[in-house]
Design a protein around this nucleic acid. Sequence first.
DNA 1: CAGTGGTCTAGACCACGCT
DNA 2: GCGTGGTCTAGACCACTGT
Lengths: 285, 285
Amino acid sequence: MTSDQAAPPQYQKIAIHLGEMIKCGEYQAGDRLPSESEVMAQFAVSRGTARQALAVLQAQGLAQAAVGRGVFVREQRPSRRIASDRYQHEVGQIITRGVSPHEPATSFAKDHRIGSDEYRLDKHFQEIQSNDELAKLFGLNAGEPVLERRFVFYAKDTPQQMSRSYVLLRLVGGTPVADPANEPWPGGNIAQLATLGIIVSRVEESVAARMPLQDEATMLHIPTGVPVLTIARRMLAGPDRDEVVEVANIVIPADRIVLDYTINLDVWPDPVQTLYTSGGRAAGT
Amino acid sequence: MTSDQAAPPQYQKIAIHLGEMIKCGEYQAGDRLPSESEVMAQFAVSRGTARQALAVLQAQGLAQAAVGRGVFVREQRPSRRIASDRYQHEVGQIITRGVSPHEPATSFAKDHRIGSDEYRLDKHFQEIQSNDELAKLFGLNAGEPVLERRFVFYAKDTPQQMSRSYVLLRLVGGTPVADPANEPWPGGNIAQLATLGIIVSRVEESVAARMPLQDEATMLHIPTGVPVLTIARRMLAGPDRDEVVEVANIVIPADRIVLDYTINLDVWPDPVQTLYTSGGRAAGT
DNA sequence: CAGTGGTCTAGACCACGCT
DNA sequence: GCGTGGTCTAGACCACTGT
């Protein structure tokens, strides 16, 4: 085995070459890359190959084409951050101000660092029977009626995320929570449930990533080469923090967001002593 | 404005058509999709268009091509789960058993539900000067010497994730932690730091998603249309849980993994009373 | 109007996998 | 050997963008 390496195809060489120029900063974010004709001339290839090279960069999320204008280097920095701390902050709001809507800003507006008047959301409420998947998440039998709430969030007219939230109809039926006109709810989801006497004490989030579905790409204006982050969220209440009161599926384009999670660990009261009495060895600080 | 809808191009129609058949279950995971020639015949298009249609499905992560065999529907279920609870469990191990290596299995092996003998890792240690980015994460001046530890994890010879971990050289220099031969460390990262007297009390993770870089795709065998999840992890210690003792960047192909986070909220002791006396604040737990 | 990317065609040669 | 996908060429027409 002297050389297993097959020579990379032309279009890949070109893509790697341009990719390195981007990495090195010779093309900055927003700069126009060589056009198809320019690539054809520069590398002596046909248009198909030139296009393929530029397509690679787009699939990698490094570049984005604009008809009639050219191919441009994409911005790479995610700007928004969504922190798990937000939930504790929402609880804090309720504790200090009660459940009345004193605070117009929601977590969403805060995440975007925009005023609460600069965003809007499309909403669509619907009563449905829970299917097997939903029933399993709630821990009850399929067929239980639930309220499905679909949202699409916009910040300054740009769609930012879509979500489907599910709550048990027997808990929210006939209450203000079931009225779309009350969304966005001041103080957020936890405050909303608090008005019903439901005290959320645990939130579980399952995070995954995949390429967007066709309708997601359309609705959220997701360019090629950009995946979505999906969050399956469960809000729990009750004395044992095990009663599922809300389930939500959230889809967010991954090119502008980072999810921050803080995990505080319960550490024993006197570490040094515990280490020595349990057979371990350690140097104290 | 009667119809803004431009007719979708042929290749997209075909892609949508095939995509719906996958969604409806007419093509199951592992099934072979129509070959390029079959698509050409079925839809009366040239080979280029047929290829483009099939390429769409691959870019969406729905299908994967295999030379000489065909295009196949990809498995969609993520199998592994990585839970934030793992850190608390690692702490529990130390509390009950001390810092000695009683427990050969690491979190990684547990995540994969494989024996600790079924995985291995490539490791590469290196002493470097911290750059601006690293220094900022650690909260100290650039140039501070750090130990960079690069890992690639394999489960049954399949690469699963790669990571770069950074620890301050003045804390680990000359200790067993700086010796690659001791990896994988029994009990995991937190146990490792515990042997140095460092008690990790907080973990912060920043999760994002993007398409893989070329070398990541190569090293982790990532097929087209599969993004990666990136985790920037900071381990904190000290009385105020604010001293950064380890920083790590983790890259995981997103097609087989879900990240589970649990957020426990501090709720006031008597919700009803607090609600009615609104304006009061509660004692934390 | 000239230049851009988007779509589509009709060929060609290649390496790979199965039989 | 035959069918598969991978690469590459040389053309064509189109819609869009800028000046």
